[in-house]
């Protein structure tokens, strides 16, 4: 059952990314180019995706996931170094190439060698991230 939901979610995610044009790095960098010829498409994609998700969050009240277990608890509104530094690093990479993790995976079949290189170094970055997180944690408690 869980695997079925995963397949359905991944399929919808992949179709949506492709149809919306978010696997096209020109459109992503065009959105980030606020001072140039700004392309608002990404804002419509975000807005469009937030709508059904807002309904879904509303439906989680007093319920359990269909496959059992429990819904994720609301995270504490904690703005630590990891959140800020992580978002800065991610944003820099996102602006640099125009790819984020979802579209990087979705474009695997047509992204060519460049897409493969991006995926490979992204996975590498994910492997070294826990070490960097621990370093940031230790600095936070010390400082």
């Amino acid at each position: 059952m869980r695997n079925l939901f995963s397949i359905l979610a991944g399929t919808l995610f992949g179709i949506g990314l492709y149809l919306s044009g978010m696997t096209n790095t020109d459109k992503v960098q065009g959105f980030l180019d606020f001072f140039g010829s700004w392309d608002p498409t990404l804002a419509f994609v975000m807005g469009g995706a937030i709508l059904p998700m807002a309904v879904a969050w509303g439906l989680t009240r007093n319920r359990e996931p269909l496959a059992g277990g429990s819904f994720p608890a609301r995270p504490e509104p904690k703005f630590d170094r990891k959140l800020v530094i992580g978002a800065i690093l991610f944003g820099m990479g996102w602006g640099l190439a125009g790819l984020c993790p979802g579209p990087a995976l979705a474009s695997l079949s047509f992204g060519g060698t460049g897409g493969l290189i991006f995926l490979a170094t992204m996975v590498l970055g994910m492997m070294i991230a826990p070490k960097m997180s621990r370093l940031l944690d230790s600095k936070e408690t010390a400082g």
Partner: peptide, 12 residues
């Protein structure tokens, strides 16, 4: 870019 995205998203 890939390195930054991978590390940044996991740290953040």
């Amino acid at each position: 870019a890939g390195l930054l995205v991978g590390a940044g998203t996991r740290i953040g």
